[in-house]
Design a protein around this nucleic acid. Structure first.
Lengths: 218, 218
DNA sequence: GCTAAAATCGTACGAACGTTCGCATACTTC
DNA sequence: GAAGTATGCGAACGTTCGTACGATTTTAGC
């Protein structure tokens, strides 16, 4: 390993942590230099621009995400087991004690949701790939005959993803110690529902018109 | 209405929009002054400090949230109808076309999740109150005999909240036009499940040890 | 219409920001 | 060990940041 790559890795470790707490924009090169014991210019030289540094931070986080969430789940054989493993490791990843600031990818996604640019585009691709992986894994469970035929896998992926986001929010902002239990329970229910043949809807229907808001959509 | 209060309201309108896109920190007084056609110092005088401005932005957003989400839902009589109305208006609020940047409260909650201070504390209180309102409303539905006896209302509130966060993420980052349908479907299922007597768990249990991660918790 | 108060402005400050550049030191490779 | 390159530093640039203060204009109450 080159000297350069080595210090670059050190920098990125600190950078990921700082970006998690202060955001990708709030992470400043000066403070990062102080944290790593380097000079501003020396650190800067490794990346050439702040945007490039932000990109590098996201790529480092994504790489870590693969290593800690995706790879371990691939040991499982069935779709359901992989989904459970993905979920399990994802929660661990979302709330890793040693990394303050939670998942940098989720935080940055909120931060850059409405700010066009390469950071935004990168995040969209990365997060869409993640949700699509969940969807494909549920599709695999359907193909295996474990989840019911005709399951709406996009819907499944949406709910799976939502539970994780809910956990992230509750655990980080509320410091809710029950968040883990809630998330696991929600996943159990989601998977159970995916197995069951479709339930007949109950007779009672809501009095409120439901989708007026979305009426303009296709 | 005083002149002061009037311009202050104008400022806050712009400020809420800017904070939604650039974050509470990314919102700068200079750019805000340019957007409102005022001088930096003139604008600054209305608040006295940037933290105070941030507080004012959050309070303005919270007030608007009450006006647009909580109040309308109070017209409904039953717990379920109120829950559905809360959800409906919440989604509208989360993705209001005229307000770029999504819900400032959610964005700021992520931004300040790990940054102690009065902004953090305010957000914790506000968001906890919101989730607790959902919980109380589901409790009301239980008391009315609509939701089943013994329903875990904290769990219900967690899932309700998660769906909203999932919608916010999908709609804003992915520009997913199906997000609204997914969210509504998820809510329907959540409410249906709250009505049903507890389902017997299916025989198949996961092979993966499920809660190792949370084993250290109480 | 006068006057006290409120609102707004212009200017300035020190700090922090991202970035540049030339120079020194440390590595690698032969 | 010499040559050549990679790496890091220090100082400085121009810009933007939040904030302060006195002067000036605009509003509100009598």
């Amino acid at each position: 390993m080159n000297k350069g790559a080595q210090t670059q890795a050190t920098i990125l470790n600190h950078a990921v942590a700082m970006a998690g707490v202060h955001g990708l924009d709030g992470m400043s090169i000066a403070r990062l230099a102080r944290a790593t014991g380097m000079s501003k210019s020396g650190l800067f030289g490794h990346f050439g621009s702040k945007v490039a540094l932000q990109r590098a931070v996201l790529e480092a986080a994504a790489k870590e995400f693969v290593r800690r969430v995706l790879i371990p789940a691939q040991q499982e054989r069935t779709g359901e087991a992989r989904l459970r493993a993905l979920f399990h490791h994802w929660l661990q990843w979302l709330y890793a004690e040693e990394r303050p600031g939670g998942c940098p990818l989720v935080s940055a996604s909120i931060e850059f949701a409405d700010r066009p640019g390469e950071v935004h585009d990168y995040l969209v691709d990365q997060q869409e790939a993640w949700v699509d992986r969940i969807r494909r894994m549920s599709q695999k469970a359907v193909a295996e005959g474990n989840f019911r035929e005709g399951l709406d896998t996009r819907q499944f992926a949406f709910e799976f993803h939502s539970i994780g986001l809910g956990f992230n929010f509750a655990r980080r902002l509320f410091s809710d110690s029950k968040a883990l239990t809630h998330a696991n329970t929600a996943l159990d229910q989601l998977i159970d529902a995916a197995k069951r043949s479709r339930q007949p809807r109950l007779a009672t229907r809501p009095a409120l018109p439901q989708r007026v808001y979305g009426a303009h959509e296709g």
